[in-house]
Nucleic acid binder design. Structure first.
Lengths: 307, 307
DNA sequence: GTCAACGTTTTGTCCAGGACAAAATGAACA
DNA sequence: TGTTCATTTTGTCCTGGACAAAACGTTGAC
């Protein structure tokens, strides 16, 4: 009945469910079948998960979202697991700007961080700001959070700051009568809203008209809004912790519900490998691909461009 | 394993949990103890909740969030229950602007809606726009959603539109070196972000410096951010479906963690009745109270005003 | 070599019914 | 009127079993 039983020993099963996104039932059945996690018990006989096990659970969740199955993960030894985790991370060195900005974030010097970002935005322009600053910074912040180097509060601070900057920049460039008309949103269970704003920031300078529905729009509502709003493109954003399989299923279903003349975009690096191909469905591996996808849409719809 | 088992007969227990916010365990134990809800069973023996029962569960949840206990609710007959529900709703007539704006929303004419809102914003100024337009409109949209008159997609559209407008307006008035410094956020399990923006829109024109952490910040992070960021006030926003008791507990805990010189504000109409009084904790019944609370803070801290 | 069909294994979610501590209530008393 | 204590209410956790959907691996056909 208490909902903040966060003693130093560890977290309750409910807290772990909130933290990792793994259902209580799943946590219990893993313990039974694979012997992990193996939480302590409090005086009352209830599970108490030590921070170390929670950290590992987060890693496991991450691997599973990439399509890996628990059987393999639990069978693997320490080294293999670390290898899998490192496989997609070290592709890029942590850029120089990032380090100093993350320092500012950790010191909670939000005003200084804002100025640093603003300076970069003005220097580089919106699109390069997104690809060269925001994207690597997002990755670093995500890694730092995974390591426990920054708190949830600091991550919120970062997210709000960036959201304000991007919204303002996009708003200034808004042009209500252009083409194509793009509807942006995420599926249910996907809370990450920054991806949407970043996409908007890439597309609006190209003259596209973007309307965002924010996060977690039910499938049926996406389809009906796209049709009644006379949109040309529906763009969905997926963060790295959205289960790939679930994404493909939902995309197929949405593709079925949409008329053929509306194109569907799915943004998310981890969706692209072994993704089922569908007519009128394009996967965007990186945020920059949004621009090239827009260009290719325009060449395919040259007749309508005038309006 | 399928996550959209939404057949016409009814919803699975997992879907009901998502929809109502009542835990699976709670739903099952209510069925055992009180005989309600009494879901159908599918071919597999699993619970299947008909829409009517889900609607009633929503009502029950609403009453419980106001502090009522299940024993009373389940004992009450149809009429008494309806009386309890109607008690707080009809206080205000639906204002004239609202009707036409909701029409625009239902027709998905987002650009027209934006212009209408923008016009009112410029005519009334930010603060009056919030109190006279946004507040009643929010209520109407909420009621329309409860009645099923507007879809989730339309509600998202509305929320995004307003968010953009308010963020831009607030951004334009920003003054990084003022007093007091106010930290805005919501507790975990509270997703409603519009309340925060509305508060910001009321406070920033008065010269306060607002920093928002967005929604769902853990208690400990609120306290540590407030202290390291040298804030004077922590302001929390609660929507009508946040359990009052849980709010009071968390507020007491947070008050304990914060040093005495940081004031704590809690916004939310339903929190004010029978609320436990605490030193340095102020309840704001309406959004407009933020301004008067700010004034009273200033009179109490006249010495510091200069910086 | 690619693809389809099919049996096997894995895996997440649900179920029943018991238990218990925290919260809320009401009674007794100062 | 307010405080203390016993009683009831209520949400959450527990164990261990069950099963369908999904994923996998094999086989065979082209």
């Amino acid at each position: 009945m208490n909902n903040t039983p966060e003693f130093q020993e560890g977290l309750s099963i409910a807290a772990v469910e909130r933290d990792t996104g793994l259902l209580k039932d799943t946590l219990r059945v893993w313990e039974r079948r694979y012997g992990f996690p193996q939480p302590l018990r409090d005086a009352n006989g209830e599970r108490l998960y030590p921070p170390a096990q929670i950290a590992r659970l987060r890693q496991i969740k991450r691997l599973m979202d990439q399509g890996m199955r628990p059987g393999k993960i639990f069978a693997a030894d320490e080294a293999t697991l670390a290898a899998w985790l490192g496989k997609d991370a070290p592709s890029t060195e942590p850029p120089p700007h990032c380090r100093s900005m993350i320092d500012l974030l950790q010191q909670q010097r939000s005003e200084a961080l804002r100025q640093s970002l603003q300076q970069n935005l003005l220097k580089l322009g919106l699109q390069r700001f997104v690809t060269e600053i925001v994207v690597p910074l997002n990755i670093e912040v995500g890694l730092a959070w995974l390591r426990g180097d920054i708190t949830v509060g600091e991550e919120h601070l970062y997210s709000e700051l960036l959201q304000n900057m991007l919204r303002n920049a996009v708003h200034a460039l808004r042009n209500p009568a252009g083409r194509p008309r793009i509807l942006l949103t995420t599926l249910p269970d996907e809370l990450h809203s920054l991806g949407l704003l970043m996409a908007e920031a890439m597309l609006v300078p190209e003259g596209a008209v973007c309307t965002s529905l924010g996060t977690q729009t039910p499938l049926g509502d996406i389809a009906s809004t796209a049709m009644s709003g006379e949109f040309d493109i529906v763009a969905l954003s997926f963060s790295a912790n959205y289960p790939a399989r679930q994404a493909w299923n939902n995309l197929a279903e949405l593709r079925r519900q949409l008329p053929a003349h509306i194109t569907l975009w799915a943004g998310g690096r981890h969706l692209c490998e072994r993704a089922p191909a569908l007519d009128g469905l394009h996967y965007l591996k990186e945020i920059a691909d949004a621009v090239s996808a827009l260009e290719s849409w325009r060449t395919q719809h040259q007749t309508d461009q005038s309006s």
